[in-house]
């Protein structure tokens, strides 16, 4: 039985469909990623799961039992980290964690123990009595993670958890997630538009324009692309793409000003490709293994980094 099952979750904003019947099964212990560009519907899915929005239609099952998204059983088993910070700036790190624990009715003595554990785990013990207003983005994000976990949830819900973090903070954040997973008992559900972050998930749901287009492990998704990715930079990419399919019979697409070719063997293609064009036409040719960004491109026809029409923010008034 899946820990969490979504059935036909749908949400519209003034007639515009933001999420079009999302159905998913999340198994216990997974790190499940919702992958898609901005506007694909993953933020809407997150806000529904976080209890900030109400779904138009759809059902949610927790361990096989149907629950409302605002059901206390679901809410109390979930810890949530928001993309936009949600700490209380006027309170200290310790007070923020204590507040998080008490909000979920953790008894006072137990909450104190948990708070100290979390502070120690994140390496904040000696800064616990500082107000968080002056803290860096990476530290705050880790404190948000600690607050989301302080009541001992079974499901951790993260919205773009590493958005805006530098490389060191990104690694530190995922190191802590890895330790949690190793300890067992926690299922992680996160949204991301980063291919490198998606690769760290156990399973991925790929969203595009509010619809689920694929759901599989990162390896299985990457193997759908097959072979190598050859990228060509040229001053006239459209001509080069046309020439490639004409002369070499391979299909080429222009993505963000570069010619991208999916080839069974890149090594065999590149010499022929270089000889097919006169000197000076190609600025650079590169070869790499496919990534989840390529998978996304293949599944949807557009790049993961590109923005789709923005969803209205959660703070907008609904009618």
């Amino acid at each position: 039985m899946p820990l969490l099952r979504l059935e036909g979750l749908r949400k519209t904003f003034r007639g515009r469909v933001a999420l079009d019947g999302l159905s998913l099964r999340v198994e216990e212990g997974e790190v499940f990623g919702l992958l898609g560009p901005n506007g694909a519907g993953k933020s809407t899915a997150f806000q529904l799961l976080a209890g900030l929005l109400k779904a138009d239609t759809g059902r949610v099952y927790l361990e096989g039992r149907q629950v409302g998204l605002d059901d206390a059983a679901l809410r109390s088993r979930m810890g949530v980290v928001f993309q936009r910070g949600s700490l209380d700036e006027h309170l200290t790190a310790r007070e923020n964690l204590m507040l998080g624990a008490r909000l979920y009715a953790v008894p006072h003595a137990q909450a104190k123990v948990r708070v100290e554990e979390m502070l120690g785990w994140m390496g904040f013990s000696d800064r616990a009595d500082e107000r968080v207003a002056g803290w860096s983005g990476g530290m705050r994000r880790r404190l948000e993670l600690a607050r989301a976990l302080v009541h001992g949830p079974r499901i951790l819900l993260l919205d773009e958890p590493t958005q805006g973090l530098d490389e060191a903070s990104f690694r530190s954040f995922w190191k802590h997630l890895g330790q949690l997973r190793a300890a067992g008992g926690l299922t992680v559900l996160l949204t991301s538009h980063r291919a490198d972050e998606a690769a760290l998930c156990t399973r991925l749901a790929v969203l595009d324009k509010g619809k689920l287009v694929a759901c599989d492990t990162p390896d299985a998704l990457v193997s759908r692309v097959g072979g190598d990715i050859v990228t060509v930079e040229a001053s006239a990419p459209e001509e080069v793409a046309a020439g490639l399919s004409e002369v070499l019979g391979v299909s080429a697409e222009v993505v963000e000003g570069r010619v991208v070719v999916e080839a069974g063997s890149g090594h065999a293609l590149i010499p022929r490709l270089v000889e097919a064009f006169p000197a000076g036409r190609l600025a650079s040719v590169s070869l790499r293994r496919p990534t989840l960004a390529d998978v996304f491109l293949k599944l949807t026809g557009h790049a993961l980094g590109a923005d789709q029409p923005a969803e209205p923010p959660a703070t907008r008034r609904r009618r």
Binding site: L52, R75, M78, V80, F82, R84, S86, L87, L103, T315
Partner: peptide, 16 residues
Amino acid sequence: DRKEGFLQCVLAGPGS
């Protein structure tokens, strides 16, 4: 609280 984001964590919490 809404502007600073704090309200989100309360609304996502288990209280009605």
